[in-house]
Design a protein around this nucleic acid. Sequence first.
DNA 1: CTGTTAGCGCATTCAC
DNA 2: GTGAATGCGCTAACAG
Lengths: 348, 348
Amino acid sequence: MENGQAPDRRTPGHTVRLKDVAARAGCSIATASRVLNGNAKVGASDRERVLAAAAQLGYVPNSSARALRSQSTRLVGAIIPTLDHAIYAKMVDGLQEQLSAMGMSLIINTSDYDLEREKVQARVLVGRGVESVVLVGTEHSPETTQLFRDAGIRQVYTYTSTADGGDAAVGFDNFRAGQMVAEYLVGLGHARVAMIAGVTKGNDRATQRRDGFLHGLEGAGICQSDVLVLEAPYRIESGYHAMQSAMQTHPRPTAVFCGSDIIAAGASNYCRTNEIPIPAEVSIVGFDDLEIAELVSPPLTTVNVPAKQMGIMAGKALSGDSKPVKSLIVHEMQTRLIVRGSTGQAST
Amino acid sequence: MENGQAPDRRTPGHTVRLKDVAARAGCSIATASRVLNGNAKVGASDRERVLAAAAQLGYVPNSSARALRSQSTRLVGAIIPTLDHAIYAKMVDGLQEQLSAMGMSLIINTSDYDLEREKVQARVLVGRGVESVVLVGTEHSPETTQLFRDAGIRQVYTYTSTADGGDAAVGFDNFRAGQMVAEYLVGLGHARVAMIAGVTKGNDRATQRRDGFLHGLEGAGICQSDVLVLEAPYRIESGYHAMQSAMQTHPRPTAVFCGSDIIAAGASNYCRTNEIPIPAEVSIVGFDDLEIAELVSPPLTTVNVPAKQMGIMAGKALSGDSKPVKSLIVHEMQTRLIVRGSTGQAST
DNA sequence: CTGTTAGCGCATTCAC
DNA sequence: GTGAATGCGCTAACAG
């Protein structure tokens, strides 16, 4: 009798295919497929033999084939500015964790805050067959948005509470967060204030934090034109230099709002180096509530952003059916002002 | 009017396929494929028409189909402990950047320092058809290593200079780095030293840094049993508490080597809170040279690790043919001791 | 140089 | 319930 059985263990170089499993289980490839996909309509005996065969052979389904056939890749793409910034890294960490638990895989690409690069990465992701994408912010090239829409790819925006152009948003209201900081500083009696924002070009989060801040000040009778607004990349040295510029104006601001803790850390450094006491001479407020906020001295008053949680929620927003949803889902999260030692009453 | 031509723009919902491009260009699907793949043997007129058609229709090749047919996915997997640690995030940032430039995509998974979870993620990556994987360290479950080998997947280890079980290593010698720190501290006259290592279970980097450190001390006549060695997760509070324990021993150590800047930052915090002057009473050395090393006061003496560069090199190690290489490639990178204000001569 | 043909591995329709 | 047959979109043989 023909004992053309498959070998006990997979042989290096020869990938185990479904037909190998079927052969070993003594059933058809169709039945094997049904078992492995949890299809109920299979006899118990066949089921066990297939499962055993798959385990023994170390069968791993080929997802390219499965994707091609079933038109479902269970792949999610993410385009973020950079991973070299804790706020995005944490978000992706949460996203990955959640997707992994849902049996989906994550392809990540970085854009370096460049909407043109984002567009290129978007094409790559479409080609990879991702079923959803997670982007940062609301501001994207129209072509990018259109490309995803045409391909039937669901778009989730993070770090924002508006989903214009996309299908869902998971984040917070940057404008209101900026406003909150303004009100806090005004409440402490500050009238001469400055802001070191992140680079606003192509970055709606930075833009809205700034605008909300200015709006909040205006509500307290502080005219926008009286407020020094600088921009700095999210790097410590940039914060240092921007603070230097700010502190060389006359009269000096008594409070400075920084668009990120990274910038605030640099600003804080500048003050320490130049013996400008914080908060006696100048109060500093950061944004993000990174670990470094507690490390600088005095520790930074800042705005807490639930970065990892945002990634988890974004992942959850992708569960269920894989078709784009009709109604916009907006999951707004709360930011909290964390008051530490870097802020105090206005000095004069 | 209906002239049987493909529409000018892709219609939402209907994905453009290669045959659509071919139809519009008035050639066969094979010719279109050749053009799009840069195959030289195609007439100039056909070439242009295909290119134009593809552009007009917004054609995006289906990589599942391409992968299935060509047995080449151009997909790379990475399994790292977590993205919520700058040292890994930076590495992945560099890796992603390099792979993107090489036309490859990156799927990332996290293991949370758990070799069992790593094994699970490994199966997922194999199923996704990745052609290579980037792992952290040399210590992996035998099943994980075997799984990749059987599937013909090239394994690149990072943060280590030994490639046992894998095909390539891009990193540095953790043992020697630890030894270097020991020699530095001994040179400053320190005889009572302690170490707060990372959790060594399943973490060969932490283990080797510790062992190298102890070995270096032993070379200077300091017996291992006289050295207090604690372990702490990579979190600031953990460093704080570990330092607390270390400082409650008698006699106190005059120098403490921390397995990571994160831990060192916590240790530094403890000293500040408890008015133990650094480095007058105790010297602290960190590891990684993260941004926070310069933020704490006094700034940390630490060991610089070229994290992003490591990712870039790992990506480059994946270029060329997609088959596992026969010879082990080891790309050893240099670590440098960065001396800042947290270390000084032994106090007594 | 170009078109025709044949699958890649799998899920799924349709008969049995 | 189960197996045989079909084709997802594409590339690589093979002819012409």
